[in-house]
């Protein structure tokens, strides 16, 4: 049950759950997804990109609602387009907020279970509602739900049949931070049970918390894929920012300024912010600098190791 990383190492037992080969999709003259290839196994993967990058188009291709204009899209080894039986193994949470407003949360989830042909629809629906933590609101009409509750009931409906592949389009929209955290826990837990989960987002901290695996889509093209820290390390031409706390920041700053590997030093409240080109070189420098200046270092943290900066970089390149 090893969480497969991408690109898929092929000694794994099963074929990758999701596989795109040179997939492209265009609408008239507008290219929404351009020559994208990747494969995903079990685990949580974040699909990132600014608005209009083609995330929704990609998810719709995976969900079988769009045929690729070129290339191939396979989910669980099959082409999802025009093959309804594939939905037995796919759970889809679309981006649009609307859910049947006149149904109660429970009725909606049960409806999904029945449409999946489940015999134990009642208990499955109760269980699914419980997984997203909506028990208290289960018997209220969805029309009375808040945005976050609607998102959760959509997720409950999508995972009621325990799909092998779960596709979520902006699932955290409208959720409050606590709901976000518990939804993330749920996704990680499902991934732990061998499910393949792909969710899209344009908010980067969401992705950071859950999985380390990301796919970055920029203007329809796959700009990066893999572990986001690894991706960050590959981008050597962009300076790293490091936050340092020490017993005497001012003194340390003057020492660091003298070193050619340091681009800039900025004195902040109780901390130093240092910019450098090479992380490994800096590790040596900081150790010596601390000793020569006679300053005790209390904290050395790479400040910009956030997806935001990775993303910024990829978009601007």
């Amino acid at each position: 049950m090893t969480a497969q990383t991408l690109p898929a190492g092929d000694q794994a037992v099963a074929a990758p759950a999701i596989e795109l080969a040179n997939a492209a999709r265009w609408y008239g003259n507008v290219v929404a997804v351009n020559d994208v290839s990747f494969s995903l196994g079990a685990g949580v993967t974040g699909l990132l990109g600014p608005n209009g990058a083609g995330k929704t188009t990609l998810l719709h291709m995976l969900a079988g609602f769009l045929a690729p204009s070129a290339g191939t899209v396979h989910v669980l080894g099959r082409s999802p387009h025009r093959d309804p039986s594939v939905y037995r193994q796919i759970g889809l949470v679309p981006e649009r907020e609307s859910v049947y407003a006149f149904l109660t949360g429970y009725e909606y989830v049960r409806f999904n279970a029945r449409l999946q042909g489940m015999r134990n629809a009642d208990s499955a629906a109760r269980a699914s509602i419980a997984r997203v933590g909506l028990e208290d609101a289960a018997d209220r009409a969805i029309g009375t739900y808040s945005k976050g509750m609607r998102q959760r009931v959509k997720v409950a409906g999508a995972l009621v049949h325990d799909p092998q592949v779960l596709l979520l389009d902006e699932p955290f929209n409208g959720m409050d931070p606590r709901q976000r955290l518990s939804m993330m826990d749920l996704l990680v837990e499902m991934a732990g049970a061998g499910r393949t989960i792909l969710f899209s987002s344009h908010i980067l901290e969401e992705v950071e918390r859950i999985g380390t695996e990301i796919l970055v889509l920029v203007a329809g093209r796959l700009a990066a894929s893999g572990d986001f820290r690894a991706i960050r390390a590959l981008m050597t031409d962009r300076p790293h920012t490091i936050t340092i706390r020490s017993s005497d920041d001012r003194r340390l700053a003057t020492t660091l300024m003298a070193d050619p590997a340091v681009f800039a030093v900025e004195l902040k409240e109780n901390a130093l912010s240092v910019q450098t080109a090479h992380l490994s070189a800096f590790r040596r420098i900081i150790a010596t600098a601390g000793r020569t200046a006679g300053v005790r270092l209390t904290e050395v943290v790479p400040a910009d190791e956030s997806l935001e900066s990775v993303f910024d970089y990829l978009v601007r390149r």
Binding site: A17, L76, S85, R88, F102, L103, R114, L115, Q164
Partner: peptide
């Protein structure tokens, strides 16, 4: 572990789906 897709081609869901969709449509309409 459970990476194998269950390729059930028969659509047993259809039997239970029909009355469900009918009921849903009544309430919509």
């Amino acid at each position: 572990m459970s990476g194998t897709p269950m390729t059930g081609s028969s659509m047993t869901g259809s039997l239970t789906a029909f009355p469900e969709i009918v009921r849903l449509t009544f309430r919509q309409q």
